[in-house]
Nucleic acid binder design. Sequence first.
RNA 1: GCCCGCGUGGUGGAACGGUAGACACAAGGGACUUAAAAUCCCUAGGCCGAAAGGCCGUGCCGGUUCGACUCCGGCCGCGGGCACCA
Length: 853
Amino acid sequence: MSPHDPARIEPKWQKAWDDAGVFLARRDPAKPKYYVLEMFPYPSGRIHMGHVRNYTMGDVIARYKLACGYSVLHPMGWDAFGMPAENAAMERGASPKDWTYKNIADMRAQMKPLGLSIDWTREFATCDPDYYGQQQALFLDFLAKGLITRKNAVVNWDPVDMTVLANEQVIDGRGWRSGTEVERRELTQWFFKISDFSEELLAAIDGLDAWPEKVKLMQRNWIGKSRGLQFAFSFADAPEGFDRLEVYTTRPDTLMGASFAAISPDHPLAKRLERNDPKVAAFVAECRKTGTSEEALEKAEKIGLDTGLRVRHPFDNDWELPVYIANFVLMDYGTGAIFGCPAHDQRDLDFARKYGLGVIDAFVAAEGGQPVQDEAFVPSKTEVVRWIKTFGWDEMATGTQAIDAAIAFCESQGVGQGVTKFRLRDWGLSRQRYWGAPIPVVHCDACGVVPEKKENLPVRLPDDVSFDKPGNPLDRHPTWRDVPCPACGKPATRETDTMDTFVDSSWYFARFTAPHAATPTVLEDAAYWMNVDQYIGGIEHAILHLLYSRFFARAMHICGHLPETAIEPFDALFTQGMVTHEIYVTRDDKDRPVYHLPEDIEWTESGAKLGASGAPVEVIPSAKMSKSKKNVVDPVNIINEFGADTARWFVLSDSPPERDVEWTASGAEAAFRYLARVATLSERIAGIDPATPGDGDEDLLRAMHKTIFDVTQGIESFGFNAAIAKLYAFTNTLTKSQAGHAAQRQAMLVLAQLMSPMVPHLAEEVWAMLGGEGLIATAPWPKPDPAMLVEDTVTLPIQVNGKRRSEITVPKDMTKAEVEKLVLADEAVAKALAGSAPKKLIVVPGRIVNVVI
RNA sequence: GCCCGCGUGGUGGAACGGUAGACACAAGGGACUUAAAAUCCCUAGGCCGAAAGGCCGUGCCGGUUCGACUCCGGCCGCGGGCACCA
């Protein structure tokens, strides 16, 4: 029998922690607090290795901080609303609610054996009426404070499923489920006014010191601040109701190269023209057929239609530009109208060539170069300045200030004004779906849109819904919509749209601080526990989830639900890599890939073969685990076979946490064998007669203190793989040590403590075996003795011209002069010098010596 | 197109500007065993050499430095983010 028996010890220690209530988060004013949070899971029904890695990392931090004397909050919940539950309902008639809660129960049962230090008393699911009721209360508060608005928006509409589709659900311009062509449709939707916070959300990124640069950069780009010139063209022949055409440009310096103006098909002018001109109407309709997804836009040809209207160039009244309607001009960026400068923008050039528009060879002609042919000339900033000068503008600033100078010049001439625009748009939260938090408003013929009264919350989802027809079941429910108007009491109808599931995850971290409160949060609790000290999750949430949460924290503060100190809710963020696995591929007779399970592969000297047929198998390393590729490793199987400690140890050990880690069967077995070795070692040390003296106590204890130092550093800096390497090394040292029993026992206890955040069950077992006091989970984290970290003697490598040639061992406080003397006396150095004196002798105390010849 | 990040043995990866390859996987050799598994010990960047030792070596080219995987410039390759954004 293996000395390491997870099936026996893991449940035992989990029960011991539970019984002692070790992981219950308590507000304790006497202690510093620490809030560790991993991004909560969607309850798909199965945990996967990615979860194991994510939660193990958080658990290491949580257990470490607990041992360091912090009052720790480490909660878990479920991001439980969303499409998969409705899909399950449509596919097999399950109730979304039953399906979801069963999945939660299943996943919790799979998660518990991992031995995570979770305070389960704080658990909730976002589909709990209690949670979404509080979310509805937040909605009402936001609405009252003007943080929410209702307006029209263009969406992807699936005419068969009768629902709005997210961009990701539009594939090749067709609905992913129905396969029909998606339409662009304008609907009235609710929006969070996140764009009001653009400047602040951008500026505050600078203060997020413990966030990855990559994530901060992605957020900055997403918010997309730009500086440009907004000005108006006057019409040569003004259409009714439009005396000017407002345009926005970030390149005012190219204004003298303008050769056309273009408006969006959704521009009010286009809508005006469409009424009287069937050609325009047909063209605009054509443009609207294109979806709004990235692929659709990528493939769409750039098309335009001459409206016949002409505008005048702001610097030359006689210079007229045609006005086109063009499908590539977006209504919701800038003013929905642009000018085109073919000489300096590739897209404008392509468009001008296609429709036979003039190309002004602005810069190029002035410098005597070649006229613009097929490629637009995009001048550098300094060249722009020269370009400007050729048009008689004054001497201007150079370099990056060229654009600002151009704006200033235009302003001085009364042509427009400099404006700052953001790419960030308001966040549309309406979804025409069932399985989400109902938007708590009522539509009344007399009063219009009326917020529901808070005392009527939660607005509960009805359970008796059917998915036999496409569309939103709430629309078809016989009675659910019927409700008295909260204002006048007359019969009215509920809003049937529900909230985007991103809303649910935008404040759950705050709810964990008071998960059962009758208000969204309790300020006192929020003030104690917020902010999240360490947030851990996937990079895929770098933009939306994290940006929305930052917005929500601000909005909640404005409504009095969070203290001002919590407007940036996540102090530190860590984005962890995936768990990958090899995939095994053969080809069928049409050369299509066929995937195989790891257990079907046989390893021979000439490579991988298919066990059944002996066909050679192509091995593709480091692929994301997916069912279709048959490379999924189920944590449940691993826990059953090796125990949770092995799974935890392995996902931390091989790669730095921010990078992907490849799961390998041999690696998992090796992790198990190592843990067994530790158990054996512990048994052996426990069995030694306490009176046994030994040899090398000091060396062992020095190594122990060095390891305490290194492992502590490793955990603090998310260097789990490096910390584990140090633990291996120290285990090897202890195994070979001939030290006396007392020293070995002490070293073993410390080893167990240092391992305890990663493999808590085994650590408890070792701790108990050697008579450690209480539970290791609550034992104070060991501290290295600084005196034991300094060696009395140091070994200095000696380099000659930067290459290592020898070494000397000297007392650590030996003077430079003495070291130099010894170095020159060194045989290898003397040989290299061959009698002559060195040019230079560099002694870096305690580090290295370099002899320059 | 714009913006980032990363290139180190057979593999995953270590390395405050200071002995490159810690630690582990896989591999090879050995001990124990009738045998295998398990366990334990040893070897291991490449080239030359019996050895001592030497030369080369962190994608490529150059620079800074006594000293560069690390800093700077250019190139190549891979990965990621954003994008009809005017």
